[in-house]
Design a protein around this nucleic acid. Structure first.
Lengths: 153, 153
DNA sequence: CCTTGACCTAAACCAATGTCGAGGTATCAG
DNA sequence: CTGATACCTCGACATTGGTTTAGGTCAAGG
């Protein structure tokens, strides 16, 4: 092999990224990362995959679904290293997503406090959440933490 | 029936809370709410269940698992209306949970920004996340958004 | 009495996010 | 060449949070 190994095996990627093999193959199935194969059908990854993985794991920690992450990643070029502009666009996107979530949590926390403070003791009636039908209007099975998702089967 | 119906059927609870019947039965199986039965084996709920449900849904929206919620709820008295002290204790608990999550998100967001700002372009190396082994140390299959859970059988 | 609508249980199913195992192949060190 | 690893695929299983369906029962009105 040449001095600087140009590509990495799945084991190396797993070790360096901390993402288990099984998850790497899973992500590949889902189109989140890609690889090419050796003549012996083994996966070889570009180094850039490590960057993608860091991104994926970070996003997951915030509660984003793989589907959402996948969607965002498709806006990055597969072939070349993303430019500053690529990342900036993506980051703006995530930022607003994060802002929304943070905002929701902060409000919830503060309302919870004020519930106690005001002595009403009833979360159900003091504005912490919507009474009756409004909650119903959200529909059943609403995915937690995903305020943006709606119809899409 | 007496002037003020003392208990509510599952349909009434579902309508008032916006939580579908199926979920109500599911929650009951999980021990999140409780009911007693009529002679005809139908569920009858105390009004306080509505409050519990509001709490459950609120907590879910923040990304807490039913298991965690159940654990918190068991610290509330099943029989009597929770006192101010009961709620205060619980709220303190949730508050720190929320604070932790909020903090994590804020940090992630800010780091993401600084990644762009500093021009390094590489999320993997500029501190957005831990390099190499630290990530691995988190273990595979780490449940998203649940920084507090760890060993648990 | 009969129908209708609300309710019952149990079990199957769904989607997301992976893990694990079986059975087989590649690659490398010696 | 041989044996030890690392890797391959594919399918089954796990967990969370429910929904749906099938097959009945209960309660109320005509």
């Amino acid at each position: 092999m040449p001095a600087s190994s140009p590509t990495l095996s799945i084991g190396e990627i797993a070790h360096r990224s901390g993402v288990p093999h099984s998850a790497l193959r899973f992500y590949e199935d889902r189109g989140l990362i890609s690889s090419h194969r050796t003549s012996g059908n083994q996966r070889r990854y570009e180094r850039s995959v490590l960057r993608r993985l860091a991104f994926i794991r970070s996003a997951q920690r915030v509660g984003l679904s793989l589907e959402d992450i996948q969607a965002a990643l498709t806006t990055l070029p597969e072939g070349r290293t993303p430019t500053k502009a690529d990342w900036a666009r993506l980051s703006r996107q995530w930022r607003s997503e994060l802002d929304t979530r943070i905002d929701g949590m902060v409000r919830l926390r503060d309302r919870l406090d004020s519930c106690i403070g005001c002595g009403c003791l009833s979360l159900a009636t003091c504005g912490l959440h919507n009474p009756d039908d409004e909650l119903a209007a959200q529909g059943p099975g609403a995915p937690m933490l995903r305020p943006s998702r709606e119809g899409g089967r």
